[in-house]
């Protein structure tokens, strides 16, 4: 049975405390900073959902931002065009993303890594084209404007309140991922990534699990899209194209196949644009270089790299007292 170490719980508690205090610290009127904080939330969800797919199940999906777009647009259409309550719109958007995810699941169950990568990136391009061309539904190239803010009991939520809503959703998503990973399903996912034929021989319905994880992962990305839509009040196909590279960099650099990876990735890569504001023209190149460097020197991502390093230091410390005892992996 999985046991999380006490020190890990302390880290998590500190992170949640910081997340709770952050908006107060930056000031409830500081919309610029609040937007960044909210962006950590939806990027965190996105990275975690992509991590389920690539990191845990080994399915190279490159079109993940498309699900965010599907979720965002579905929310906008349900909420604004059709005038549904935002809760219904969110549920609707998540369900629609889930169903679209199943289509990619179909591809996962048939295709090997490289062809899947092609298919998913092609899928993302197709979604972009549909958004641009179906003007009546999506607003076309001008984007979808005027998505209303959340209103609860007649009170219009500002960014300050929205942040806490987004944070709560993010924490729930991470709790969900945590429970999923340390369960029968999570083990099956990792088995599929490690050795698909052996997984099947152990009674795991390999295609079934790929299917399921694609659906779940797409649904979570759709949820992130909803937060994004509410936060921005505006959607365009262009924004999601940019998200693709950011998302990939976050997932890869943070570290795949661990729950802390997406958190680290989101915080590091999500902050990068702010640090490099004067060099914003170089951002994509920096992302590219980072992806390559991480793949070269830290294939397990920044989090994995730090963990390995810490593990090595610990082993060296313990070597004298406990010969032969390998550093714990944290699992």
């Amino acid at each position: 049975m999985h046991k999380t170490k006490k020190s890990t719980w302390v880290v998590i508690a500190v992170m949640i405390a910081v997340a709770l205090a952050a908006p107060v610290a930056v000031g409830p009127k500081n919309n610029y900073m609040l937007n960044i904080l909210i962006s950590y939330c939806y990027f965190g969800i996105l990275a975690a959902s992509l991590n389920l797919l690539i990191g845990y199940t080994g399915q190279m999906s490159l079109g993940h931002a498309a699900f965010m777009a599907i979720g965002g647009y579905a929310y906008a259409i349900l909420n604004k065009t059709m005038g549904l309550h935002f809760l219904i719109a969110i549920v609707g958007a998540v369900v629609i993303s889930f169903i679209c995810g199943l289509f990619i699941g179909l591809a996962c169950s048939k295709l090997s890594t490289i062809f899947l990568a092609m298919t998913t990136s092609g899928f993302a391009k197709a979604v972009t084209l549909i958004i641009i061309n179906e003007k009546w539904l999506t607003g076309g190239a001008n984007g979808f404007t005027g998505i209303p803010k959340l209103t609860v009991f007649g009170h219009k939520m500002g960014n300050f309140e929205l942040y806490y809503v987004a944070l709560a959703i993010t924490l729930l998503v991470f709790l969900f991922c945590y429970r999923l990973i340390y369960s029968k399903t999570g083990r099956a996912m990792q088995a599929v990534r490690n050795a698909p034929i052996a997984a099947a021989a152990m009674g795991i319905n390999v295609n079934g699990y790929k299917f399921l994880v694609c659906g779940i992962s797409a649904a979570l990305a759709g949820l992130a899209g909803c937060i994004y839509a509410v936060n921005m009040n505006y959607l365009s196909a262009d924004m999601f194209n940019k998200t693709s590279i950011t998302l990939l960099t976050m997932t890869v650099c943070g570290g795949m196949g661990s729950l802390f990876g997406p958190v680290v990735g989101t915080l590091v890569i999500g902050t990068l644009p702010e640090l490099l504001r004067t060099f914003s023209g170089y951002l994509d190149g920096v992302y590219g270089v980072m992806i390559i460097l991480v793949m070269l020197f830290m294939p397990e991502g920044i989090y994995g790299g730090i963990k390995n390093l810490a593990g090595k230091v610990m082993t060296r410390k313990n070597a004298a007292s406990q010969p032969g005892k390998e550093a714990q992996d944290g699992k």
Partner: peptide
């Protein structure tokens, strides 16, 4: 495979 994805952006840059 992931590195070649990163390479895309490097060459574009």
């Amino acid at each position: 495979l992931i590195a070649t994805l990163g390479m895309q952006y490097v060459v574009q840059q």
